[in-house]
Simulated scan of single mutants.
Amino acid sequence: MKTILIKCGGSVIDQLSDDFFTSLKELKKSGYQLVFVHGGGPDINEMLKVMGVEPVFHNGLRKTTAETLNIVEMVLSGKTNRKLVQLLSKHGLSAVGINGTDDQLIQASIIDEENLGLVGNVQQVNSDLIHLLLEKDYIPVITPLGSTEDSKKLNINADYAAAAVAKSLNVEHCMFATDVEGIIIDGKVASLLEEDEVTHYIEEGQITGGMIPKVTSALAALDSGLKSVMIVSGKKAFYQDETLKGTQIVKKQEVIK
């Protein structure tokens, strides 16, 4: 079974185009199974503001108190996940939303309780539930939440959760859906970049602004053990004529076909 994992940031979900979903259907026709892991930053920040809770970040990760975690879970599970599942269903794709805490799907340990609170580092992904849904031709849509061995719920960075799920499923591709077509180098989308090339282009100033956190997330996914990640557009078609469009990032010159 060929599987592709697609990570959607919370801000990208509202920008997903009809062409994006057409590409998903083309992938299905080509024999790929799809799995989504999503974030929910904007929706979470909006609800924290409504609830009068000030967001706190430490080294780019959201500090998660027990109060914050309740809001994070409510938003991810009750709003953002529902939104993405509904979009997939609207475009004729059967999807099922699940939490990373369901059946201890994502097992995690606390990273740094003093500075980050209830934020977890993924230790293991129990992928039986995912495989069960894929066998029935459903698209699992997973929230980046995890739980400890004693069932304490934890907030997981969506990029790290996506990489862990991708690795556990041994996917063909791990894709980061963004608001751009890929990494622009010398005025055009680079189809393939090695990890050290990405670092070089950041230092050189060709990769700037909002692209930096996107590629940093991709590099973090590589560091977790994946051989390849891709940055693709959520606003345009990224798969046509059995060809993927975007930027593939690899540790070494190792093109994953």
Rank of each mutant, 00 (worst) to 15 (best):
A237C: 02
P140L: 03
N81I: 09
S127G: 04
G41E: 03
R82I: 13
L169C: 09
N170Q: 13
D223M: 03
K167S: 08
T243V: 13
F36S: 05
D103L: 10
K49R: 11
M74Y: 05
V35G: 02
G225A: 09
H173G: 14
Q248K: 05
G117R: 00
G120N: 02
L5F: 04
Y160V: 11
S11L: 10
S224T: 13
L226S: 04
M51V: 08
K29T: 10
T65Q: 00
N157D: 08
D128K: 13
V37S: 10
K90Y: 14
Y160D: 08
N115E: 12
G60E: 00
L226E: 04
I13T: 12
L145Y: 03
G10M: 10
A161N: 09
K29E: 12
A166G: 15
I212T: 04
A166E: 13
V122H: 01
S151D: 15
M47G: 05
Q248W: 03
I183C: 09
M51T: 07
T64Y: 11
A237T: 05
N115L: 06
I106S: 00
G9E: 02
T216I: 11
D102Q: 01
F176M: 14
S191M: 13
A164D: 05
I207F: 14
N126T: 02
V141N: 03
G60H: 01
K28R: 15
S77V: 02
T64S: 12
F36I: 14
N155V: 00
E204L: 13
L69A: 02
I111A: 01
S23E: 15
K252W: 09
E114T: 06
K257Y: 11
L226T: 07
A220Q: 14
H38L: 07
T101S: 13
K28F: 10
P55C: 07
I256K: 07
L87N: 11
L61E: 01
L193A: 02
G40K: 13
Q15C: 06
D112C: 01
Q107F: 00
K167H: 10
L76A: 12
V35M: 07
S17M: 15
I249K: 01
P55N: 12
I207H: 10
P55F: 08
T65L: 00
V96Q: 04
P144L: 00
K214W: 09
